[in-house]
Amino acid sequence: MKTVLEIKNLTKRFEGLVAVKDVNITVKERQIHALIGPNGAGKTTTLSMINGTLEPTSGKILFGGQDITGMPAYKIAQKGLGRTFQNIKVFGSLTALENLMVGAMHNNNKGGVLRMLLCVKETNAMERTMREQALEVINEIGIYRLKDEYARNLPYGSQKVLELGRALMGKPKMILLDEPAAGLNTSERAEFVEILEKMYEKGIDLFLIEHNMDVVMNISHMITVLNFGQKIAEGTPSQIQSNPEVIRAYLGNRYKTIRKTEESRGNANAGR
């Protein structure tokens, strides 16, 4: 298997506080990779460094074999690395469809304003492709009926899906998801996981941070565990569940037993 994303000795310091320390992660192609850890373990910081919104203090990040350390976020996004946020970031005063079309802009961004004004035909064609693609994606993520609503008026769950859709619009090779299931109710969460799986089947690799253990254990192939900015374990879901250090630091000793009882009740969504 080829390596898609490689993080080498990544470190981030905030004025004396070490948020992430010497983390190494290797994400293989065609995998759903999860990053878990207790609050304040440096997960979101790691994600932000990968997609370029934060600059690492030291270390290297390779995406598709190319060094992307310290590149501006928009360039990294153009290389095919999408991202969603923990606290939703949609464009409130644009409609849902327009939100998606913004996501496709960098693929259809030939020339500046002058070219747009002069080449009417080309611009119109580009606009049409963007709109068609957006309609396709909005159908896929299941909020077609809300396409002309302003994004700020959408319900929380739909905004979350919309953000994912915007990342999809850029035709990424990989999407970084920051707590995709947080704040969703049971049925919404199931729907979201379904969308994620569909995306994975379409050939997009996923790298996600998640607190909900059932989502993580169900869909991911590989899990990395962070604690206090350091990697403490890496492995398949079953390996992680039986790793004593992980259980001590994060899952808690009771996790396994709770999970067993929940499963026996047939409820797959409890047991955070």
């Binding site: 996004a77 970031k89 464009f91 644009l94 990342a167």
Partner: peptide
């Protein structure tokens, strides 16, 4: 698309940046 980009700058520049 420029109108959308301008409004996106007002609403959420960070999200626009990660959209490439």
């Amino acid at each position: 698309k420029w109108r959308r980009a301008f409004i996106a700058v007002k609403d959420n520049p960070e999200a626009l940046e990660v959209s490439g």
